[in-house]
């Protein structure tokens, strides 16, 4: 049985090799924090980290994941919601419906790693995940707050 290293644990699964990582996470590994939004890498709700790089998992087939690559999902971002992005999100009450927020948080965490002192323009250029409730301004404020907390 094939395996993936997810949130530091090696996990077995049963899926065809062209199955998107998103659906292996959700349906085989029970990690439903990663969301299905569009299936075409347009919305970012399915964002996870692969070796620290923010990746839209709906367009990543499991056969393209190389042995040893480490996948981190929202469930594994921190053990206790202590990542600066999660702390800032809580402080500012960022989520509304919350459905896109796993992806937003994963995208923001990777972004903050690359841009530890982000400007508004950096955020605008790089935070491309969609939110239908329109939490963008709080996401922006949350990233800046997280930068202070980091």
């Amino acid at each position: 049985m094939p395996t993936l290293v997810v949130n530091g644990t090696s996990m077995d699964f049963d899926a065809e090799p062209d199955t998107p990582l998103l659906w292996v996470l959700r349906e085989q590994l029970g990690l439903t924090g990663t969301k299905y939004g569009c299936g075409v890498a347009a919305c970012g709700a399915c964002t996870v980290h692969i070796d620290g790089i923010a990746t839209r998992s709906c367009q990543m087939q499991i056969q393209d994941i190389r042995p040893g690559e480490e996948i981190t999902t929202i469930e594994g971002l921190s053990p206790d919601r202590s990542h600066p992005i999660q702390q800032a999100w809580a402080e500012l009450d960022v989520p509304q419906c919350g459905y896109c927020q796993s992806g937003q948080i994963m995208a923001a965490a990777a972004f903050l790693h690359d841009f530890p002192e982000p400007t508004d323009e950096d955020i605008k250029q790089n935070m491309t995940n969609l939110c239908r409730c329109g939490t963008y301004n709080r996401i922006k404020a949350g990233i800046k707050r997280a930068a202070e907390l980091s």
Partner: peptide, 17 residues
């Protein structure tokens, strides 16, 4: 602050899907 935020921060809130 909202009462329903925690589960939206770590993926633990279950939506119907």
């Amino acid at each position: 602050l909202r009462l329903d935020t925690t589960g939206k921060l770590d993926g633990s809130q279950k939506y119907a899907i």
